Simulated assay, not measured.
Amino acid sequence: MTRPPSRSRRDRHGRGLRGRLVPDGVPLARSRAERFDDLVLDAVEDLERRWERELAGVEFAVEDVPWVEHTSPEEVVLDADVLDDDSVPLARVLPAHRENGRDVPPRIIVYRRPLEIRAHDRDDLADLVRDVVVDQVAVLLGRDPEEIDPTG
């Protein structure tokens, strides 16, 4: 005779209920990736106010780490559209192109982990993210970063 599955299996060893320790909606409940996304969105929103027409079709994306083919560090050659620090990509611009008969808009990709590693604290990370986004927008628009963000 088999017993029906029990609903109390989660408290099997007397550890209590498992789950989130903080309620949704408080800042502590947000993950590092979500907080990083917010920093990128803040930087993009500031730039879109000034460059609305030029950035109208541009997509912004965040990836955890850059994808690099398995090659030795001496063989890694980065394109001109990649912002790097000691051959580690921090961000990348993918220009508009045509793929499988459809138009693909330009895209700026910001890599989260390389930037987080270089930042000392949250304020430093916010400044670094803003600088990287400004530099990549400048590359995409063919302008100087000082022209894109004179306050930076």
Rank of each mutant, 00 (worst) to 15 (best):
M1E: 09
M1L: 08
T2K: 09
R3Y: 10
P4S: 09
P5L: 14
P5A: 15
P5D: 13
R7F: 14
S8Q: 10
R9D: 12
R9M: 11
R10D: 12
R18A: 05
G19P: 00
G19V: 04
R20F: 03
L21I: 02
L21V: 02
L21R: 15
P23I: 08
D24A: 06
D24E: 14
D24N: 05
V26T: 12
A29T: 10
A29M: 01
A29V: 07
R30H: 09
R30E: 12
S31E: 02
S31D: 01
S31Q: 00
R32G: 00
F36E: 06
D38F: 01
D38T: 13
D38K: 09
D38R: 12
L41W: 06
L41S: 12
A43F: 04
V44S: 14
E45A: 07
D46G: 12
L47P: 05
E48N: 07
R49K: 12
R50M: 08
E52R: 03
R53Y: 15
E54N: 11
E54V: 14
E54Q: 15
G57H: 14
V58Y: 04
E59P: 01
E59V: 07
F60S: 07
A61G: 08
E63P: 00
P66Y: 01
V68M: 13
V68C: 10
E69C: 04
T71R: 15
S72N: 09
P73K: 03
E75K: 07
E75C: 05
V76W: 11
L78R: 08
L78Q: 04
D79W: 05
D79C: 09
D79G: 14
D79L: 10
A80D: 12
D81T: 15
V82W: 03
V82G: 02
V82C: 09
V82L: 10
V82I: 15
L83M: 07
L83N: 14
D84H: 15
D84G: 00
S87F: 07
A91W: 04
A91T: 03
A91K: 01
A91S: 11
L94P: 00
A96G: 08
R98L: 00
E99K: 08
N100E: 14
G101R: 06
R102T: 13
P105R: 02
P105S: 11
P106K: 09
P106Y: 10
R107H: 02
I108T: 04
I109P: 02
I109L: 05
I109V: 15
R112T: 02
R113I: 07
P114S: 07
E116W: 08
I117C: 02
I117Q: 06
I117T: 13
A119V: 10
A119S: 08
H120L: 12
H120T: 14
D121L: 06
R122S: 15
R122E: 15
D123E: 12
D124A: 11
A126C: 03
L128F: 08
L128W: 02
V129C: 04
R130M: 09
D131F: 02
V133G: 00
V134D: 03
V134N: 01
D135H: 06
Q136T: 00
V137K: 06
V137Q: 10
V139M: 06
V139Y: 05
